[in-house]
Write a protein that binds this DNA or RNA. Structure first.
Lengths: 140, 140
DNA sequence: CAGGATCCCGCTAGATACTG
DNA sequence: CAGTATCTAGCGGGATCCTG
């Protein structure tokens, strides 16, 4: 309780947005942010797998990092993140061209949240797997 | 760095699962958890709009709480959450029947994470909106 | 009240081919 | 290298009707 920051208090104070309401803009934002690829891209740019320090990554580095992502989904995800002001896109006019992505301040503010999500999934995988087998067994 | 808890260290220690890998089970779990309705259901059961205390809610109460949710999606979401061991489903044989849902311990462990997500979306809506108009303006 | 069962549309994700 | 463009199959998700 002594750990509440000024930013957090501002958040609590302005109750203009409520994601429980279908019409609220924050509902769409929640939907956007609640995305597998968004989470993984942000985690990669946050350096969650390398010292947990924000870093910039090139397109191809991201593609390699996120197993199974298609070019379309990666580009699409990066575009929406850029549009929403969560990442920056920097083009260096080398030959061939070099494009790197990095978190903005806004992106950094979401960093810990998505990391928690990823960490939670990895940490509680066993519990969930156990829960599923129990559930499935009760039906048979 | 002095703020790492024992639980966090355990999580970091067991690197058996890695959501960056396409084949890893935690990838599917991340995909499941990264869902608008999952987030909102957990937030509702966590009592985020009423003193932030976990509580049990009936099906109809959840339906009313989550604006715009269809019966299909609500039922589907609740089933998967039950199967994964995140919520409990309790049937009371009244007439008509009463069904209530509540968080399990595992569900409680995810509570703060999804709340953060919802709170973030509501708190930074203005920033994102501003970022979008800037982005869109630069194209025109 | 709390769903189950169906029908069906839309859009998304994937695969493929092409380019500055 | 870092995308864009196009096509398509598949399914997510809504609407509707029905039931213990």
């Amino acid at each position: 309780m002594a750990t509440t920051t000024a930013a957090q208090q501002r958040q609590t104070a302005k109750a203009e947005y409520d994601a429980f309401l279908a019409a609220c803009p924050s509902r769409q934002l929640l939907d956007r942010v609640s995305d597998k690829w968004v989470t993984l891209v942000l985690c990669a740019l946050a350096g969650d797998d390398d010292g947990h320090e924000p870093r910039s990554l090139r397109y191809s580095e991201l593609a390699r990092r996120l197993g199974g992502v298609s070019q379309k989904m990666l580009t699409q995800t990066l575009r929406s993140l850029e549009r929403d002001g969560l990442v920056t896109r920097t083009v260096v006019a080398t030959v061939p061209v070099t494009v790197s992505y990095a978190l903005t301040d806004l992106g950094v503010s979401l960093r810990l949240v998505v990391r928690s999500l990823k960490v939670w999934a990895e940490a509680h995988m066993d519990d969930v797997l156990a829960g599923r087998s129990t559930y499935d067994a009760r039906l048979a």
